[in-house]
């Protein structure tokens, strides 16, 4: 990230989105979620509350889960952003999505991408208790499921992942 030496209403930014370089001129006021959805057509990232409460807009910024509705696009200049589209072929993600389907962990599905991205930000899932899972997803709101089925889906996917030998070991 380079300095921007004079105050500007629009800033040239460069970032990596799902592995591809993106260069764009962004209004200072543009939210990251609007850059993703409106300019890059990446509509898996949902806009729910727009003030950082519901978690529907969760993406990974440099590998860490973050809320794209309370992140200005100009502040991720130079960062790598991953949306759910970027993990479409990721085996762990596919397994988690399958587990959500099997455990009825979604009904309307609006919140689901946010849950999946919060979970995608977790590197170590072995030995996670239900309490830990509940704490982790406490920043994502779901109005359909009552959460129990989501906890069960995560539990099942993580148990399966923990039982597999990790690649490289």
């Amino acid at each position: 990230m380079k300095p921007v030496s004079r105050p500007q209403d629009e800033v040239d930014i460069e970032l990596i989105v799902n592995g591809e370089a993106v260069r764009t001129r962004s209004p200072a006021r543009r939210l990251l979620v609007d850059l993703l959805r409106d300019e890059l057509d990446l509509t898996a990232t949902h806009i729910g509350c727009e003030h950082g409460i519901c978690g529907a807009c969760t993406v990974l910024i440099d590998g860490q889960a973050a809320r794209s509705c309370i992140t200005l696009a100009v502040t991720v200049d130079g960062c790598a952003v991953t949306t759910l589209e970027g993990l479409a072929d990721d085996p762990d993600m596919k397994e988690m999505q399958q587990s959500f389907a099997e455990h009825h962990a979604l009904q309307c599905g609006f919140c689901t991408p946010g849950f999946l991205m919060t979970l995608a930000g977790v590197n170590r899932c072995d030995g996670a208790t239900d309490e830990r899972i509940r704490e982790l997803i406490s920043g994502n709101l779901c109005r359909c499921t009552g959460y129990q089925h989501i906890v069960e889906a995560v539990r099942a996917a993580w148990d399966a992942r923990s039982e597999r030998p990790s690649p490289g070991s």
């Binding site: 300095p3 921007v4 030496s5 105050p7 500007q8 209403d9 006021r29 939210l31 003030h51």
Partner: peptide
């Protein structure tokens, strides 16, 4: 539910930042 218009600056030093603030 979007921020109103504003200008943005990303200074390279604390002195510059204090100057803008």
């Amino acid at each position: 539910m979007k921020p109103p218009k504003f200008a943005y600056v990303r200074p390279a030093s604390i002195e510059e930042a204090i100057g803008f603030v």
